[in-house]
Design a protein around this nucleic acid. Sequence first.
DNA 1: CGTTACGCTTACGCGAACGTAAACTTTGGG
DNA 2: CCCAAAGTTTACGTTCGCGTAAGCGTAACG
Lengths: 133, 133
Amino acid sequence: MSEQLMTIRQMCDAYDVTPRTLRFYEARELIFPERRGQHRLYDRRDRARLTLILRGKRFGFSLEQIRQLLELYEPGQHNQTQIAATIKVARERLTDMERQYAELRDAIADLKTTIDDSEARLARATGNTQQTG
Amino acid sequence: MSEQLMTIRQMCDAYDVTPRTLRFYEARELIFPERRGQHRLYDRRDRARLTLILRGKRFGFSLEQIRQLLELYEPGQHNQTQIAATIKVARERLTDMERQYAELRDAIADLKTTIDDSEARLARATGNTQQTG
DNA sequence: CGTTACGCTTACGCGAACGTAAACTTTGGG
DNA sequence: CCCAAAGTTTACGTTCGCGTAAGCGTAACG
């Protein structure tokens, strides 16, 4: 029970994805489930990777960018040159994310202000008092 | 000179997009340049909208979501019901952005840690001292 | 033993967001 | 006057991230 293998169906239920999606990610070499006969079996490592994949998608990263990032989490059979390259790519992603973080902060502030303004105008137009939240 | 109209080429150079992109956004009703004869001319309002469009794209919003948000910035010929609907949609986007902001913060922290770990391992493997920045 | 369920592979389809090519008009230069 | 540049429309092509359907294997259920 140290491995806790899951079928594709269990994975789909747990992560709210379709079988097609999991097979697609596998085809793109983002996850590598075992094969028990024909069937796929997903272990803890696969689930960790899937979590990172879905997170990365939410930030608008492409599957290829995510794949590169995932290499960082696999202290596997890479030589130093490859690892150094992976780290470099990861640093670029990190920079992207930090820039996006700052930009998002500003955009949130802007949007809040604009919504407030719009609400104020609407309130004056209707002559009613609108709720704020 | 109060309007500062720009040609499509000037817009492309200024915002690093292609003519195709600008025409595409216009077809999707995200921007509405004037027509001087056949040619398009972009004013300050178009540029402000384009800035918001490109920003929205960086956050992974679809052009349709962005279009809805843009309505918020146009105190135009909408009735109260439409404005209220627009505000509602905008609040949903705002919630999305705030969630993403928090998640991004965590992801940045995670990635930093992972990069550091990976670097430390690489340093031990090579026996060298690696730079951090 | 049939059929139902689940999974597999193969492959075509699709919406989003443009790229790219073709053919036409307009405008300015030599 | 001719041509090249810039812009326009129309329309088909492309990449990404899957959806969806067809057809096959096999394991379980009644």
